[in-house]
């Protein structure tokens, strides 16, 4: 197997990892809470792409039976699709809850920068 084969066969996984790391970097390095939620969503989508990549079959077709039961058709693996369908919806639910908490934090603290919020908490404790 040549080098280009290795790259082509793993390109999807590597882009997924790059996306995952961009998401993780956002969560760690950015102080703004909304930006952290967006980073978490980028991370999440990269995991979806990972699963769907594993389910893909070269020369296959979408896992929907057309007409009679054709035995010589290759279908993509439907199992990762099912898992990811559930994960997308759950992901949006958690995003909604996170955004609600962000709105509340802004109402209570007047800022969404992590550093400022920690400082306000420390000031309140030392008083």
């Amino acid at each position: 197997m040549t080098m280009s084969d290795v790259v082509l066969e793993h390109y999807n996984y590597w882009v997924v990892i790059v996306l995952m790391m961009i998401g993780m970097y956002t969560v760690i390095s950015r102080g703004h809470l909304l930006k952290k939620v967006i980073g978490l969503n980028i991370f999440q989508t990269s995991v979806f792409i990972m699963y769907i990549s594993i389910g893909y079959v070269e020369g296959g077709t979408v896992p929907i039976v057309e007409g009679g039961a054709a035995s010589d058709v290759v279908y993509a693996n439907p199992l990762p699709h099912v898992l990811i369908l559930t994960a997308i919806v759950v992901g949006v639910s958690t995003t909604a809850l996170a955004l609600a908490l962000i709105i509340r934090i802004r109402e209570a603290y007047g800022t969404l920068e992590e550093y400022d919020i920690q400082k306000l908490d420390q000031d309140a404790e030392s008083e």
Binding site: L34, F48, I52, I88, G91, V92
Partner: peptide, 26 residues
Amino acid sequence: MLAADVAFTEAAVGAGIATVLMLAAL
């Protein structure tokens, strides 16, 4: 990548509802 159902859901829920939720929050 042959995942039509996932694509529908991602377009409607991921690109649609999640973006609307974030805009509503903004």
